[in-house]
Design a protein around this nucleic acid. Structure first.
Lengths: 212, 212
DNA sequence: CGTGAAATGAGAGTAACTCTCAAAATCTAG
DNA sequence: CTAGATTTTGAGAGTTACTCTCATTTCACG
């Protein structure tokens, strides 16, 4: 049932060995998520209720809510954020900022694709179609952005909460968010790494041929 | 009850004279909004229900939902967006892009403040405190961003739906959104025009002392 | 085992939204 | 000014995401 268990190790997919209870929790979590994806594929997002999800995942509705605060979270939670932040901080301090960023974002793309292409597509599709999901994603990205802002400030010797660091970061986040949307709207035919490069280029140098 | 009726005219507050029906609709709309603001000030956002709002505005709950699709929308709808877009398009084509942008954003700030400082503050406060409101705002800004992207593309001779225009625009939107949040989090003590200038500076030139 | 802690299930409750249909207000012709 | 068409409103029932509480089960660990 689980999409794919790659043989090689990666900083984003490795887990330390856990106790038995923890492992069961993870199992439940993915069971809920798998059930959700399956149901959405069959009926669409809105038509899928928590009750149905609970039933198919063989848990009670209460449990579903214990694992995910909202329905949207079932679809899009990526628990990578802290790991990515970590990776970013581990980059050498003399590496050009944009390169560090590119490296980490590539990591994120790979991690996403490793979950299986169908899942990524379904998710991006929902991002475009369902406002609540898109909304929740923006919100979650802005939380990530807040942490990222601290890393950015740290690296550039700015104040932790400076407007400048926050604006820069959110502008980054906003730009990056468009990648998923653009990709999904254009039927996933572009290569994500290409889109990333083009995006970072715009962020670094502005629009091609700007400033009339 | 209505906050303030300025004597001088402005492109964002003027309305053509409307039929009687239309005028009543506007009255209902602002009645609902005023009731909402008052109740939130008394009880907070979450404790305020649609039923209470309807009661105080002297309409039925059904009517509230007819005027505003969600509770969050009652708080933050700004109907300025199309007008701002219009203003932006009217700027001379040879004006540097950043200056056009600055001009329009200044207009937006003035229009916002013209509603009355308490309203603006309450709104920004909610933006920080209530996730659902913040979320809805990001969503609505991203819709605006979409339209803005077309204007940007047009002005810079890019394709209507080019990734570049969209990334640039959303990055802009993301940065601008931070202004409200930063302002509210720092107890409204900064001058909004200053924050705008600093923000546009970051967007145009990147972080001060960047690129290690 | 058996004891304490953590996870689950069951159920009741709230409130935001949706839909439908009938009553009321408003516009438009004659 | 009135009659009829149209638009706006209210009333009410229904759905569903989400919250809270409490009893029961499951698991860890000595």
């Amino acid at each position: 049932m689980s999409p794919m268990t790659s043989a090689h190790s990666s900083p984003l997919t490795d887990r330390p060995q856990l106790g038995l209870r923890e492992r069961k929790k993870i199992k439940t979590r993915t069971a809920i998520r798998d059930a959700t994806y399956a149901l959405i594929k069959e009926q669409g997002y809105d038509a899928t209720t928590i009750e149905q999800i609970a039933e198919r995942a063989e848990v009670s509705p209460s449990t579903v809510f214990r694992y995910f605060p909202t329905k949207e979270d079932i679809v899009l939670t990526d628990e990578y954020d802290p790991i990515l932040l970590e990776e970013l901080r581990k980059r050498p301090a003399d590496e050009p900022w944009m390169e560090s960023l590119r490296y980490v974002m590539r990591l994120a793309i790979s991690a996403g694709l490793a979950e299986g292409p169908e899942v990524v597509r379904l998710r991006s599709h929902l991002l475009v179609q369902v406002p609540a999901v898109r909304s929740r994603m923006l919100e979650s990205m802005s939380v990530t952005g807040r942490m990222l802002a601290e890393a950015v400030a740290e690296r550039n010797g700015l104040d932790r909460d400076s407007l400048e660091a926050r604006v820069y970061t959110m502008s980054l986040i906003g730009g990056l968010a468009e990648i998923s949307l653009y990709w999904a709207e254009n039927d996933f035919k572009d290569d994500l790494h290409d889109l990333l490069d083009r995006t970072l280029d715009v962020i670094e140098h502005g629009l091609p041929g700007k400033n009339a």
